[in-house]
């Protein structure tokens, strides 16, 4: 499996999971996605920062919930009842760590060509450039590919908060 991944990584195509936030389509690589859940109520953590305000229980494992809206500078979501929760694995300091965040909806898994990825223009974009890897087109719609390394790095948030 690991080898497969590696071969896939080296090839020119990759799989993306497309989800929506405030109607905008975002994508992350499927490789690290663990599973998709119905939204759960997060247990608030005392003195936690706005980046990861709570915890949830995923099949016996305690997983921090990351407020991706806050990171991307979006307004807090009105209701999370009909949304989805995405759980993925992210290496923090070289140790894979499970993280979860909320999306308004999860659309599909698509295959994309790495070469077709475009750069997100610096001007006119509403989101911090650091968290974006690029943009691809899917059926004429622009899908923003997030840079998971930075997006889910707690240090960055801390530095921002500081």
């Amino acid at each position: 499996m690991q080898t497969d991944d590696m071969t896939q990584e080296t090839s020119n195509t990759g799989m993306l999971l497309i989800f929506r936030l405030d109607g905008e389509a975002f994508a992350i690589s499927v490789t690290w996605v663990h599973e998709i859940l119905d939204p759960q109520r997060a247990t608030p953590v005392p003195n936690a920062g706005p980046f990861a305000p709570g915890l949830i229980n995923v099949r016996g494992a305690v997983v921090p919930v990351i407020d991706i809206r806050h990171r991307l500078g979006l307004a807090p979501g009105a209701s999370e009842d009909d949304g989805r929760m995405i759980v993925f694995e992210h290496p923090i300091e070289c140790t894979p760590q499970k993280l979860a965040f909320c999306a308004d909806s999860v659309e599909q898994v698509i295959e994309y060509d790495r070469s077709s990825m475009e750069q997100v223009p610096q001007l006119g974009a509403a989101w911090p450039q650091a968290y974006l890897r690029g943009a691809i087109r899917d059926n004429g719609e622009l899908v923003i590919l997030l840079e998971t390394e930075t997006t889910f790095a707690p240090a960055a948030d801390r530095s921002v908060a500081a």
Binding site: D5, T7, M15, V33, R84, V109
Partner: peptide
């Protein structure tokens, strides 16, 4: 939801 998870698993299977 199940279908989505299946798709994700399929994607990860390469």
């Amino acid at each position: 939801l199940l279908a989505l998870n299946a798709a994700v698993e399929a994607a990860r299977a390469g």
